[in-house]
Amino acid sequence: MSDAPEPRLVRATAEMVAERANVSRVAVSRAFNPGASLRADKRELILKIARELNYFPDRAARTLVSGRSHLIGVIVPDVCSYWESQEIDRLTTALQDEGFATLLFKTRTDYSMDEQLLAYMRGYNPDSVIAFVENVKPQTLTRFLDRAVPIYIDYPHPGETPLAEPGPVFDRLNILQRDGIEQAIALLQGYGVKRIAYLSGKTKSRANTARESMLCTIMAERGLEPPIRMVGDFGYEEAFQSTIDLFKVFGGAEAIFAANDVSAFGALDALRHELGLRVPEDVSVVGFDDIAQAHWKSYNLTTVKFDLEARVRALVRLILRRLNEPDAPSLEETLTTRLVVRGTVG
């Protein structure tokens, strides 16, 4: 038995694929670019030979030539929560359909991010970075990017002008929450509800503070007293306990408006299984997000909807627009919300 090492395989090159397929080197490059013009039969032949030779394009070399890495950085506060996991899944799929790969980075629990990770991100030279958290400021993030312009998801407070901040250029997807919240309050008022509690999310979340501020503004405009504030953190357990406290210590409420659907689930289960109250006969509950689980029969939750597909399409448009107009001023897309009425208000 020989102890001689096995010879190393020679790495296949684009030229080897081109020679075997009897095509040009340019045609091989086009075959690996979904948007490039190339006859379908020729693309299929090139990809087949590439698989046989175990050839893959050298991304680093392509980046040096094109200036693009086809990588998109995504900064999130959580990867396990229901909303974030569903949005990341849809966004990753949409980006892959456009020929991008995704780099995922997670913040600390306070929504800040280790600058060493930001430096690590820069090493990948992403084409764009989507920040789902506002605590990683544009002034900080842009220091660690080269040509990429970051995209922020923002929830403007009542009366706030989008894209008003001075400083480095960044793009933004604005989510206007007024329509959906106003529809929810109008529905509750239609059923005679006056005493409303707000089950909050994390205090450091701009989405939560903007949501609560908008709710207070709309309730005041409609002649209602400010909402009772319930402690929450966007999670089920905190919402469950806070709902019990609301009714056993603080006199209860006719309706609970939750900062997200998962909190609403906690409130619903506490009302039904711990407090023995009926929903919606005794207490109405409204959620926020419209995650997939909201329509499950056990919850059948009335909720303010973010259109997930529209959000993902808007983010992809911002990326493509920026790549086509790298020197353009700040770009923005704006989406609204709407109420989805199910069985927890009535």
Rank of each mutant, 00 (worst) to 15 (best):
M1S: 14
A4G: 00
A4L: 15
M16H: 02
A21Y: 01
R25K: 15
V28P: 12
A31K: 04
N33S: 15
A36W: 15
R39E: 13
R39V: 05
K42R: 11
E44Y: 04
I46P: 04
K48V: 03
A50E: 00
P57E: 15
P57M: 15
T63F: 15
S66G: 07
G67F: 14
H70Q: 12
I72A: 11
G73Y: 04
G73T: 11
I75V: 08
V76M: 12
D78I: 02
V79K: 11
C80E: 08
Q86W: 05
E87D: 06
E87N: 09
Q96H: 07
D97A: 08
F105W: 05
R108N: 13
S112I: 02
S112V: 02
M113Y: 10
D114E: 10
E115Q: 12
L117P: 02
A119K: 03
A119E: 13
Y120M: 15
M121F: 12
R122H: 13
R122V: 05
G123V: 07
G123F: 06
Y124F: 15
Y124G: 09
D127K: 10
S128N: 10
V129E: 07
I130E: 04
A131F: 13
A131T: 12
A131L: 08
E134G: 03
Q139R: 11
L141Y: 08
R143S: 04
F144M: 00
L145H: 05
L145D: 08
D146M: 00
R147T: 15
V149N: 02
I153V: 08
D154H: 03
H157V: 00
A164Q: 00
P168K: 08
V169A: 14
F170A: 06
L173V: 04
Q177S: 06
Q177W: 00
D179F: 00
I181N: 01
Q183E: 15
A184P: 11
A186Q: 06
L187R: 08
V193I: 12
R195T: 13
I196F: 03
A197H: 09
Y198A: 09
S205Q: 11
T209A: 03
A210S: 15
R211D: 06
E212A: 06
M214N: 03
C216L: 09
I218E: 01
P227K: 10
M230P: 11
G232A: 02
F234S: 12
Y236R: 09
E238T: 14
E238F: 07
E238Q: 13
Q241T: 01
F247H: 08
K248D: 15
K248I: 06
K248V: 07
G251D: 05
A253K: 09
F257A: 09
F257K: 04
A258P: 11
S263I: 08
A267G: 06
A270L: 10
A270Q: 12
A270W: 01
A270M: 02
R272T: 07
H273L: 14
G276F: 01
L277T: 11
P280G: 10
V283P: 04
V285A: 01
V285T: 06
V286Y: 04
D289Q: 04
D290H: 03
A292K: 01
Q293K: 07
K297R: 05
S298F: 12
S298L: 01
Y299F: 12
T302G: 03
T303A: 08
T303I: 10
F306G: 02
V312M: 01
R317I: 09
I319N: 02
L320I: 10
R321D: 14
R322L: 10
E325S: 10
P326A: 12
A328G: 13
A328C: 06
E333K: 07
T337D: 06
R342P: 08
G343L: 12
V345K: 06
